[in-house]
Amino acid sequence: MRKAPLYSRSSRPAAPAAGPAPATPAAPQTPAVPAAAPPGRLRRLALRRPGPLWALTGALLATALMLGVLGLRPGQRVITQDDIDAAVRASLEKEPLPSAAAKAYETIAPSVVRVVGLPDDKDESAGDSDAEQQAMERSLGTGVVIVDNGTILTNLHVVANAKRIKVRFANGHESDAQMVGAQPENDLAVLRASSLPDDLEAATMRSTSDLRPGDHVVAVGHPFGIGPSTSYGVVSGLKREFRSEQGERTLSNLIQFDAAANPGNSGGPLVTMDGHVVGIVTAILNPSEQRTFIGIGFAVPIENAAAAAGMPPF
């Protein structure tokens, strides 16, 4: 069905002065739209104040168009916001979206590495599995790639006394690594892997300036050699201090969090829900002799960690 033109005929030139043009009768089904130049007072109004007349004409056209659309679909119910919400809920029930923690883990996982500090330089691949077993008892940890040339952040206590350092990347690629930097006051070490996987991805680091208690975070690592594993929690506090059981040093300006962390998580990333690293997991607090998690973990802010790697602050 042809539609009426969506413009007003009143914009056509006025009839010659010899006499008014005869009015053309409107078809019965045509919406009420001005059919010719307005006579008399309306014509004078149009010449003096065209704005109001255009507004009136536009309103009439809009009304006519709305009536035409409604007339094409008689009896159709108007869609409400409740209808839209119900449709979204039904779609999510069929195909639920991944949780924010799952998306954060997927983002950071390619950059997480397993770090083992071996007590001697024997070739593990030659069958000396006892060396790694010993390392798992006292110097197994985690690291995170911060530069795609193989630069890795981890904890100093993971590799401090190691004669040989081995790393295993997310895709299973293994390599020796050397310690190229350290920041003892923050228990940080910087490693450089000797060989790299082809698809190595560096993590994205994020400033902690807007981090607040209650913000959701995940900790990713290899607790007790199991991993990579992820745990979910919140930032419990900022600018905390922690003194190791041996009393060797006091760490300050730490992020306190309650995502589960255990031996083996040391050196792993503390990550926000956008998958960005805000800290390096470094310690857990447990007053008992059991070195297990009771809800209080600490991470070094990434600003300190980046400085250890010689990277400029945010």
Rank of each mutant, 00 (worst) to 15 (best):
S209G: 00
S252M: 10
R192M: 14
R240V: 10
L254Y: 04
N253Y: 09
M205N: 07
M179C: 10
N262W: 10
E137Y: 06
L140N: 12
P228N: 00
L211Q: 12
S195P: 01
D198P: 00
K166T: 13
P184C: 10
Q183T: 14
M136D: 00
E241R: 13
E132R: 14
Q134R: 14
G247T: 05
S236L: 06
D176P: 00
T250R: 08
T154Q: 04
D120F: 12
G181E: 10
V218R: 02
G227R: 04
V159G: 07
L140H: 11
V159P: 06
N186M: 13
A135V: 02
S229C: 02
A177D: 08
K166W: 00
A177P: 06
V218P: 00
V158L: 11
R168V: 13
L238V: 10
T151N: 00
L188R: 05
D121E: 13
G150D: 09
N253I: 03
S231T: 15
G264H: 05
G141T: 03
D198Q: 14
V159E: 01
G181M: 14
S195T: 15
E185V: 07
A126C: 04
A259G: 08
I165N: 06
L140D: 09
P223Y: 05
Q178W: 02
T230I: 08
G141H: 01
P184L: 12
N155T: 09
E201Y: 01
V220I: 12
D187Q: 12
A261G: 01
K122A: 15
V220T: 04
R192L: 15
G264M: 02
T230C: 02
L254K: 03
T204Q: 11
D123Q: 14
R240F: 11
T151M: 13
V190D: 03
N186P: 03
D120S: 15
V217D: 02
D176Y: 14
S244Q: 09
F242T: 04
A259T: 03
A170E: 13
D148T: 09
R240C: 09
A261P: 00
T142P: 07
A160I: 11
A182Q: 14
F242K: 06
S209F: 02
R243C: 05
A259W: 00
S139E: 02
N171E: 15
